[in-house]
Nucleic acid binder design. Sequence first.
DNA 1: TGTACATCAGTGAACGCGCGTTCACTGATGTAC
DNA 2: TGTACATCAGTGAACGCGCGTTCACTGATGTAC
Lengths: 199, 199
Amino acid sequence: MPYSSEHKQKTRTNIVEAARILFNRHGFRDVTIDMVMEEAGLTRGGFYNHFESKEALYAEAVASFLMGRGAQWRAEAGVDPMNPGPDIARQMIQAYLSAEHLGDLDGQCPMIALPSDVARANLKVQSSYQGLLEAMVGLFENGLNMKKPKPNSETRQQALSLAALCVGGMVLARSMPDSVLAEEIRLAAYHAATEMAVL
Amino acid sequence: MPYSSEHKQKTRTNIVEAARILFNRHGFRDVTIDMVMEEAGLTRGGFYNHFESKEALYAEAVASFLMGRGAQWRAEAGVDPMNPGPDIARQMIQAYLSAEHLGDLDGQCPMIALPSDVARANLKVQSSYQGLLEAMVGLFENGLNMKKPKPNSETRQQALSLAALCVGGMVLARSMPDSVLAEEIRLAAYHAATEMAVL
DNA sequence: TGTACATCAGTGAACGCGCGTTCACTGATGTAC
DNA sequence: TGTACATCAGTGAACGCGCGTTCACTGATGTAC
């Protein structure tokens, strides 16, 4: 077997990473396979050695966020069970609703970048997307419970609402042409979420 | 001038209405001008008698929501200054986060259907979209202030957070393949928003 | 150690289709006489 | 009142381009001897 055994795997990862960034920035339909392959330093034709279709790549790109920045966030938030920080939920909110995240078109969470795209995509894509939300909600549940134990159903409802508030605030801010209004939305959501997290 | 003077205007309105429904359901890129014109009972070629481009139509379709169901909601919510209902904000939340609205792919609010499309569209489209948010936030501000007067800045922040929560809850629910989870999100957002509106 | 070979990741031309947009034409309807 | 005319909303064929996907080929690299 020519080419070292990790070679193909590594190329594949490069393609997914390039795709994640491009999809985040431009959405599914406006990203071409040419663009992805060029960004990955390859040419068009090789694509189908790695993926069955453009939509299959899309699903992987969405899911890959959990491995990249998502993992970084989980680490920073101290989700490591050996070292549970006292303020996980609050830190998560702070990172998610930060000005930096709002401005990061490449690295942003796909839940912000792609919601309406995903709502119309196939099941595989939607499942990847659901995985992102479940990770976020799970993290909130952990954090909230650690801080102030409550009945599970109450914690869960609170976590789901927090997720809606975080994602909604960022989605709206992202779509406003008036950047002052965008910032106002972000800050309002940030304060409301912080308050919600201490209840 | 042949054709009665309202004739062209009426046709134009038909096209916008057909477009609003189709864009809501399928997004910008997946709707073709053929689809829109056929839905409006016309043929392809006439389109450019009415609109400069597909994107121009998109902007109008987004804005048209305010005239249609949006106006209906404002009316139902008693925004009429002659007859301000006591529970405007709560009624708005109830309608927006209802199971009915979640299931209404044609008639839903474009803020739910199109956020990531709009974030990448041209300025005209984004301005239409911003108009929707401003209408919603204004309605919340009115309602909250009527119920319990507060410093303006506080009311506004609360209204913006409510909008983020309503839109975020619906956007997330819409993208989940697991309908049980979707319903859980919608209900959590609904309860959180209702609580937030009485604070 | 060196050489022939086999494999398969990657290349780039080509295919086929769809869609936004243009354009010459049609025909319904209001107006002038 | 009726007829010829002018206007312009609507038609449908055609253009040009882009993109997802396919395919025959290339050439880098690991293996067998």
